[in-house]
Design a protein around this nucleic acid. Structure first.
Length: 434
DNA sequence: TCTGGGGTCCTAGGACCC
DNA sequence: TCTGGGGTCCTAGGACCC
């Protein structure tokens, strides 16, 4: 069987690079980007890494270092990152018809049909073009399988002598290459499996490639077995060229401060329903189940409580106006007085395409039609202006518990127009943002 | 002070049916 | 009354990813 080359393109220090693209003053300066609520550092520029700052370190721990070296600190700005991600992916599509967008900053490119030319040179051209068109620097690894392409990418990124591109497709001495890589560097091997494998003296990618496959399957399931085969150059993870519809949609958040009141939890949960249902509609789906959960802060020595409640919906739905009552009933079920709540969220599951939704005998068709129209109006306004321009009034208007985002960069890529008051319908569940 | 959010896949085990 | 096997469906939990 002929195995074709596949490339993994990965944006370097993506979030930090995005912040730099529109702000020339940050050139060659250390930059870090924070998680939601400004809690921990989730992205660093090369200069920030060089200072010894680590990913997932809480901001307060590195405050002295940040102040000393004048590091630029940003709250995360997902609108900006999403927009730049789209530009990068669009650029990649000029170089191959088969681009799989794997995450916000990564894509697999099928290079079948390009083998006749020097793949390293071709990928250098991709790299230069992306940089020129978007301002984002990428690294590229080329190999027979996704798992090997990931490894090549990692080496390309770490070692400047490769100029960001490493091709190990048809590399004769692949064993030597694998021997230089730790087993924990392999895609699919996390902390737990590293412990397990090291216990069996499996320490390098080479060791893993040659491990006993029966044992691997028993201990690491078929996924582990696939990893081993992929390390041996046998493709087992296929490419997905269209984004499959999500099977579950989560919306959850830590609060900017502790919540003790039920009505505030309800506001937050209403907001989660709004956002999750928006994602649901974007993929033309409806959900059969909603589950609501809340919890105190497990890191704090205050009384602990966490609970969840699943509610089967009477028919598949995707409008917040319909779902909200079930979510609120769930909150009533699980909320207990006397705790400091730190986080809550919802999960939508039992997701089906909208076309398959059957009307049930009992549903109030007139009300459903109204809600459907209203939801469509809301989606239209929110997509033309700014997400969250219109939202459910149940989600509250003051939101003193909302997450902290004190250092957000400006909206470079989206504009915000002031809206007239919209009277969308006689169903008064939506409000314009204040 | 402080500790992210949003996903996927897989397996084990229980309930239930024939 | 007890025992058995095979199959399906569902859920909880553990592992991973970015």
């Amino acid at each position: 069987m002929k195995v074709y080359p596949i490339a993994l393109v990965d944006c370097n220090n993506f979030y930090a690079s995005c912040e730099k693209v529109f702000n020339p003053k940050l050139k060659n300066k250390p930059v870090v980007v924070l998680s939601n609520n400004d809690g921990v550092i989730v992205a660093l520029s090369a200069e920030a890494k060089a200072l010894g700052i680590k990913s997932f370190e809480p901001l307060y721990k590195v405050k002295p270092l940040i102040e000393k070296h004048n590091v630029a600190v940003f709250s995360s700005n997902y609108t900006l990152y999403g927009d730049l991600s789209n530009r990068v992916m669009t650029t990649l599509k000029h170089f191959s018809p088969d681009v799989e967008v794997y995450s916000i900053d990564e894509a697999f490119i099928n290079l079948k049909g390009f083998e006749w030319q020097d793949l390293t040179q071709y990928c250098k051209k991709i790299r230069d073009t992306v940089e020129k068109w978007t301002g984002i620097t990428v690294s590229i690894g080329i190999a027979e399988t996704k798992t090997l392409a990931k490894l090549a990418n990692r080496i390309a990124k770490k070692n400047p002598e490769h100029n960001g591109v490493l091709n190990i497709y048809n590399l004769p001495d692949k064993d030597e290459f694998l021997k230089k890589l730790q087993v924990e560097d392999v895609w699919g091997v996390g902390r737990q499996y590293t412990k397990l494998l090291n216990g069996m003296s499996i320490r390098t990618a080479y060791d893993l490639a040659n491990a006993n496959q029966l044992w691997i399957k028993k201990k690491m399931t078929v996924q582990g077995l696939r990893t081993v085969k992929e390390l041996n150059g046998l493709p087992c993870i296929k490419q997905e060229y269209s984004v499959p519809a999500k099977q579950s949609i989560v919306s959850s958040r830590s609060f900017g401060r502790y919540i003790t009141e039920k009505n505030e939890i309800k506001e937050a949960v209403a907001g989660f329903v709004h956002r999750a249902s928006e994602k649901l509609r974007r993929q033309n789906s409806a959900a059969n189940m909603i589950s609501v959960f809340l919890r105190t802060n497990p890191f704090k020595e205050t009384p602990q409580y966490h609970n969840g409640c699943q509610v089967g919906l009477p028919f598949p739905m995707n409008s917040p106006a319909e779902m909200i009552e079930y979510a609120m009933a769930a909150v009533d079920q699980i909320f207990r007085e006397g705790f400091l709540y730190q986080k809550a969220g919802i999960l939508l599951a039992g997701i089906v395409p909208v076309e398959t939704v059957q009307r049930t005998l009992f549903e109030n068709i007139e009300r459903r039609e109204k809600i459907k129209k209203l939801t469509a109006v809301m989606d239209k306004i929110n997509s033309e202006h700014s997400a969250g321009t219109l939202y459910i009034a149940a989600a509250g208007t003051d939101k003193t518990w909302a997450m902290k985002r004190e250092m957000k960069s400006p909206a470079y890529t989206t504009s915000w127009k002031e809206l007239p008051i919209v009277k969308a319908s006689n169903i008064s569940i939506y409000k314009k943002r204040d």
